[in-house]
């Protein structure tokens, strides 16, 4: 456990010092959300209705941008092999790195979402659901993203390939995240059922994705 937390802390320190990834993701999120009304027209009623979908899709894209860096630097300079030789099983290494990604990218994006929601005229009673569902869904995004990053590690055009591999797997998270928000905004379906399924998906992903990520990492280390 100590090794796990120290690995998370190390990754967070690195992310903090570099700083670029967080601001790029946040900037991308802002630009995507701001440019969609230019295509859709300034009708606030329409925007309010589709705001949950826009916020979620833009969040997925913004998270995807940074996800391929999860293992990249450590793989380049050989740190990953040293970590793999250490006491921590590779499954937990993958989990630690995904957790660090969630804290450094997922949480800032979640906190930025309500500000962007103002631009889209999201109904006031939906703000707490927005933050709650995103806080619940972003771990699944980070853990699945780590799996994609592990599979495409060391490949030249990893970023685009990663999007193709991982975006279909994000579909359930997107569907239930948006469904939970719409349940509060428009009804009539109950909020709790969608939200609990979203929780189940996230929990299952946190347990299962590191196993697959570790298998993929072993491929690259041998």
């Amino acid at each position: 456990m100590k090794a796990f937390t120290s690995l998370v802390a190390r990754d967070l320190r690195l992310a903090w010092r570099e700083g670029g990834a967080i601001s790029t993701a946040l900037g991308f999120y802002l630009v995507v959300v701001a440019i969609l009304p230019l295509g859709l027209g300034p009708d606030l009623n329409l925007l309010a209705r589709i705001a949950p979908g826009i916020l979620w899709v833009a969040l997925l894209l913004a998270a995807l941008l940074s996800v391929d860096r999860i293992f990249h630097n450590d793989h380049e300079d050989g740190t990953l092999e040293i970590i793999a030789l250490g006491p921590l099983p590779l499954e937990l290494v993958a989990a630690a790195k995904a957790t660090a990604h969630w804290i450094s990218i997922g949480i800032p994006l979640t906190l930025a979402a309500p500000i962007l929601a103002l631009l889209l005229n999201l109904p006031a009673n939906a703000f707490w659901v927005l933050v709650l569902t995103m806080a619940t869904g972003t771990p699944a995004i980070s853990f699945l993203g780590a799996l994609g990053a592990a599979l495409t590690l060391g490949l030249g055009r990893g970023g685009l390939l990663l999007a193709l591999l991982i975006l279909p797997l994000y579909a359930p998270v997107l569907i239930f995240g948006v469904a939970a928000m719409n349940a509060v905004i428009t009804g009539p379906s109950p909020f709790l059922s969608s939200y609990l399924i979203l929780c189940a998906i996230t929990l299952a992903t946190i347990v299962l994705a590191p196993i697959a990520s570790a298998a993929a990492l072993r491929l690259n280390l041998n």
Binding site: L169, P172, F176
Partner: peptide
């Protein structure tokens, strides 16, 4: 690895799309 992850996901995707 990807194929097996995908096959675990297919029922979930199917379920969520139905929903």
């Amino acid at each position: 690895i990807l194929a097996i992850v995908g096959s675990v996901n297919i029922p979930i995707i199917k379920f969520s799309v139905d929903w």
